[in-house]
């Protein structure tokens, strides 16, 4: 075989590998370290960029054990920016972009779940229009779905379109109204 043919074969193998890996991991919820609890940028529309960067790279878990009680939880902040309120029990915070087809499938699933489960709200944010929030939460791909607890702290997240069962399972992990939920992760 020529070099070109070998490269063609390698490209096909790489594609199949990447595609299957994506299909397997899409929609799977992974718990996040307490980054969400640390992300509280305080109230207001102009959080310091340095602070956001700090959040994005994650903080030492010891530092985030005791978040300042006065801070607005980051999820609540994002919801407020787009004019929504957090769900009493949990919020499904979806980062979307105008172009992504799986975002629409995700929206349907999350709307469905929020209708089904009392106290659960679906909030959709356009990642491109809210780049501050996109950075604060470290969003790399759309759709990304974050499950926030009642206070707006992140419990878990999934990139790619999740199934309804995956969302319901993730919701079951949300601790019931517990102010110091951020210490356990």
């Amino acid at each position: 075989m020529t070099t070109g043919a070998w490269i063609a074969v390698a490209a096909v193998v790489l594609t199949v590998g990447l595609g299957l890996w994506r299909n397997a991991t899409d929609g799977r919820f992974r718990p996040r370290r307490a980054v969400g609890a640390a992300a509280a940028p305080g109230a207001g529309d102009s959080p310091a960029p340095a602070h956001l960067r700090e959040v994005e790279h994650g903080k030492d878990p010891d530092d985030v054990a005791a978040p300042p009680p006065a801070d607005v939880p980051p999820g609540a902040d994002v919801a407020a920016v787009v004019g929504q309120q957090l769900g009493e029990r949990a919020t499904l915070l979806q980062f979307s972009s105008a172009f992504c087809a799986p975002c629409r499938a995700t929206r349907r699933v999350l709307e469905d779940v929020s209708r089904l489960v009392p106290g659960v709200t679906h909030v959709e944010v356009d990642a491109e229009q809210h780049l501050d929030a996109t950075r604060a939460f470290g969003i790399l791909r759309t759709p990304t779905t974050l499950v926030l607890d009642g206070s707006g702290a992140e419990v878990t997240r999934a990139t790619g379109a999740p199934t309804r069962d995956q969302v319901l399972t993730a919701l079951a992990r949300v601790p019931s109204q517990d102010p110091d939920a951020s210490t356990t992760s």
Partner: peptide, 25 residues
């Protein structure tokens, strides 16, 4: 060319648009 082929095949076979994801980044 092989790298471009990977991106094109991913889009064709899996509906994955690498360039589109790079757009947000």
């Amino acid at each position: 060319v092989g790298l471009a082929l990977v991106a094109a095949l991913l889009n064709a076979a899996f509906g994955l648009c690498l360039g589109c994801e790079a757009y947000l980044l």
